[in-house]
Design a binder for these strands. Structure first.
Lengths: 224, 224
DNA sequence: CAATTATTTAACGTATACATTAACAAATTC
DNA sequence: GAATTTGTTAATGTATACGTTAAATAATTG
């Protein structure tokens, strides 16, 4: 019943720690950091840090630039568009697959819970709560799709746009239309209507993408 | 005008060499290899080999299993289905984006060339030639889509199914229907009909997926 | 004799020393 | 004085030594 291995390797610790520092904004987008600095900051030698940077580079969170330090990725609006195009497509596929899988209401309970939480959060004007429930909804949707490759890619890309979402969370209107979309998607999946599920979610994500990109432009956020 | 840096690092050489060994079947799917063996085989120390295995693991070509050696990935029919689902979706998106981009016939010339080559190869009963041209067609399609993230993912996944494609190349009928699909896709892109481009390619890839998976089953290839 | 516990061993994970290389500065040449 | 060359330095890339850990084997106990 133990959760995880307690004794993680330094490399894994380095990956986790660097991710945390990046998400916390302590290693801001566009900033450069030497391996030796990071190693000292994390209290370990360069070796596990190097390994961690390779992993994080493959996930698009940073870029290893020999002799210039690792550079924390900064995304342009265009990068954001590219990522959202992929997210839109793959999540829509996941929605379609989930509908085809013929889940019972029981099996869709987490999806339902997330919807209820989003609605409660909107009513309470709680944006952070809404964002958490929204993330849970999308995670669960992709999980229900059952395709592990989609799960991996979507998870990576969500990490990459995490900052941009956090930045714009308070700039946008309360997402009430969004909640309607989620209910419609839920119904489509429950009914096993894969065409509708795909369509509804595709539109939902496309609107979210346009919203996000407009906000970035309006607020002059060239790279985040 | 020099092509590339001549002096590549050992890590990069290790990535290239291991990929080549995997594709050549010298490191067969499912086989295990110690870091030290690989290091000796490549004539370098463990360090760059370790770094290479991390990169290749992130690309899904192998799996690092502490104290059991790195295991070369072996894909089941189900893995193949997952990968093809993603390939289908993302290539179809690329087709749609390419159609929207409004390319001139000039800019579509490589696509056209690949089509002509595929037709000539079918006429000459040259499967290897057809496979090369088909790969060129798909690569160019994705390039025309213009989304770098799609290019990266599709390239990775193509690497992963490379063996399965090679294995089944001689089991399938000569792909003449396929050539019709390619022409139809070309027309849709040239006309700027993104809906049609997406649809035509989606169906094309879905049929290819079903064909491949059936062949794997029929020939009892449980993992490749 | 089965099951558990100790021992061994081999492979990995990490630190570290050092070689290599690219960026920068200085010096020299034209 | 500009441009090229040379030298310096700092950071990375690589090898290697060694500690750590998990798998396998042997030993022991009930």
């Amino acid at each position: 019943m133990s959760e995880e291995a307690k004794a993680k390797s330094q490399s894994i610790r380095a990956v986790d720690a660097l991710r945390a520092l990046i998400f916390a904004g302590e290693l801001p987008p566009g900033s450069d950091h030497l391996e030796s600095e990071l190693a000292e900051k994390l209290g370990m030698s360069r070796t596990p840090v190097r390994e961690a940077t390779l992993v994080l580079e493959s996930q698009g969170l940073l870029e290893v630039r020999p002799r210039k330090g690792v550079r924390i990725s900064a995304l342009s609006a265009d990068d954001m568009r590219e990522i959202y195009e992929v997210l839109t497509e793959l999540e829509s596929l996941a929605a379609s697959l989930a509908a085809d899988a013929g889940y019972s209401e029981q099996e869709l309970s987490r999806l339902k819970t997330a919807i209820v939480e989003m609605e409660a959060s909107v009513a309470a004007n709680d944006r952070e709560g809404w964002a958490r429930a929204d993330a849970a909804f999308h995670d669960e949707l992709v999980r229900l799709g059952g395709n592990k490759r989609i799960q991996t890619i979507v998870s990576n890309f969500n990490d990459q746009v995490r900052r941009a979402r956090a930045l714009t969370l308070h700039m946008r209107p309360m997402p009430s239309k969004s909640n309607q979309d989620h209910r419609a998607l839920y119904e489509a999946i429950a009914k096993g209507d894969s065409k509708a599920a795909r369509q509804v979610h595709w539109m939902h994500r496309t609107e979210a993408k346009d919203m996000l990109i407009n906000l970035l432009h309006q607020h002059g956020l060239r790279r985040v």
